[in-house]
């Protein structure tokens, strides 16, 4: 499913891209000093959605399983962290528990899903996602039903509270770094190579003795865990969790963030996510309700103008 040729995958980190990464890191860390508060807030939202999209890229890009229900794990993480915070646990431990809850749910759902593939995997994950959303709607005692969990207290790190725009940004940026590092280390490891091998030629990998289903399940659980971690950040950022956070729209936007970015590259998924959030929350808010039209035009343009996503642009220009 990937648009990126084998060999141009995750693992190679050249000196140039290392320098680029450092420059981006510095730009991100300094952001609250040169951005207006609302721009910082938007960037915070982009980071959360970017990590979420990157976790989905682990499935779509690395192993070739396009999920249309990935928001379920974002949501399970967000509800877990939100519920814990409402019951007094606001420390980063809540993020780990959020990731664990999503991993557990991913283990169950993945066990069912990885037997199918392609469009069937797509629709099966959609169905599981819809069921998850319905549970969020119906299990009012825990999830607050359609009004969701609100009044979530700010996240804390030791004596510090992530309550204002900038401290919240740093909290999320820290989480983003941890989550991305985790995804990166997996994709750069021999394990990541095996996953890519399964994506490109399942039969051959089976012949080599790799039990592809087990690897796919592993990728599914890992992607769910990181999505859950992102969900924990989402709860801290929005201070609110509602069923729409694990709904179809969220899943679809993340999937298309991966495609627009160029699947198979974690950073590209983040860029795609940033683009979509930018269109929806910055441009969309000021065009009198034509936000969906903007998104539609963006999708159409992306397909024709960026056949390999944002990641493919530099190569094309050469």
């Amino acid at each position: 499913m990937s648009a990126v040729p084998a060999g141009l995958g995750y693992a190679r980190v050249s000196l140039r891209s290392g320098a680029l990464a450092a420059a981006i890191a510095v730009t991100l860390v300094a952001a609250p000093f040169y951005l207006a508060p609302y721009a910082t807030t938007t960037l915070t939202r982009m980071l959360v959605f970017g990590l979420f999209a990157a976790s989905l890229d682990l499935l779509v890009g690395l192993i070739g399983l396009p999920s249309l229900g990935h928001a379920a794990y974002l949501g399970i993480g967000a509800y877990t962290a939100g519920w814990l915070a409402l019951h007094g646990l606001t420390s980063p431990l809540a993020l780990l528990l959020a990731a664990s809850a999503s991993a557990l749910a991913g283990l169950g759902a993945g066990w069912i899903s990885v037997r199918s593939s392609g469009i069937f995997f797509l629709i099966l994950t959609l169905a599981i996602g819809e069921i998850a959303e319905q549970i969020a709607q119906s299990w009012t005692a825990v999830t607050g039903g359609s009004n969701g969990l609100y009044g979530i207290p700010a996240a804390t790190v030791g004596p510090l509270t992530a309550s204002d725009v900038a401290s919240l940004y740093y909290y999320v940026l820290g989480g983003f770094g941890v989550g991305m590092a985790m995804l990166w280390s997996v994709s750069a490891s021999p394990l990541g190579a095996a996953l890519r091998g399964i994506r490109d030629n399942k039969t051959r990998m089976r012949a080599l003795g790799y039990e592809s289903t087990r690897y796919e399940l592993f990728a599914f659980v890992l992607a769910a865990a990181v999505a859950g971690f992102a969900g924990g950040l989402l709860a801290a950022q929005q201070r609110l969790v509602t069923p729409s956070d694990l709904g179809f729209t969220t899943s679809a936007l993340a999937l298309f963030a991966v495609v627009i970015g160029g699947s198979g590259r974690l950073w590209a998924a983040c860029l795609g996510a940033a683009l979509i959030i930018g269109v929806r929350d910055v441009a969309g808010l000021t065009v009198n309700g034509h936000g969906p039209l903007l998104l539609g035009l963006l999708f159409i343009a992306a397909v024709y103008l960026m056949p390999h996503g944002i990641a493919g642009l530099p190569r094309r220009r050469k």
Partner: peptide
């Protein structure tokens, strides 16, 4: 898009769907 992945076609037709709705 004949030789492109399914997801690209899905992205295109979803874009068209959003435009039709608008």
């Amino acid at each position: 898009l004949a030789r492109r992945p399914h997801l690209d076609q899905a992205l295109l037709t979803l874009g068209i769907a959003l435009v039709i709705a608008e």
